[in-house]
Every structure is written in C-alpha cells, then in structure tokens.
C-alpha cells in the first residue's frame, strides 16, 4: 500500500517521465483516498503553469 511520501515522489516524477500503468493505478487509488496528496498533485501542475508564465518576458513588467 503506497504511503504519502511515495505518492508525492511519483506525482513529482510524473512531470518528468511517463509513469507505468501499475504506478498510475496505485497513485490514482491513493489520491482518491488522500486529500493532501490530491492537492499536492494539483499543485505540481500549478507550479509548472507558474513557471511557464514566469519564463515569459512579458511577465517581467508585472514582476518589476
């Protein structure tokens, strides 16, 4: 049974590689039961979205 430490590692790695079917199934099952890891997964996507906005030079005007 996957714990939160293992789930968060996989949720991070999912940003960098394709998870296996077994990993995906176990992760889905864990996040259905765990709101903390479910939020963590959404936040990994938010971080990527923030970084793509951060990398846009147009955003510089807002950061000044």
């Amino acid at each position: 049974m996957m714990n939160c430490r293992e789930a968060t590692r996989l949720l991070s790695e999912a940003q960098d590689r394709k998870l296996t079917l077994a990993e995906n199934v176990e992760l889905k099952f864990h996040t259905m039961m765990c709101s903390g890891c479910r939020n963590f997964g959404k936040q990994m996507s938010s971080l990527r979205s923030f970084m793509s906005d951060y990398a846009r030079p147009e955003q510089d005007d807002l950061r000044k």
Binding site: S35, G36, C37, N39, F40, K42, Q43, S46, S49
Partner: peptide, 8 residues
C-alpha cells in the same frame, strides 16, 4: 498536509 490553493 497540503491544502487546496484558491484560484491559482
């Protein structure tokens, strides 16, 4: 435990 982020 992570909380839900409001309107990110």
């Amino acid at each position: 435990r992570p909380v839900e982020w409001n309107a990110p």
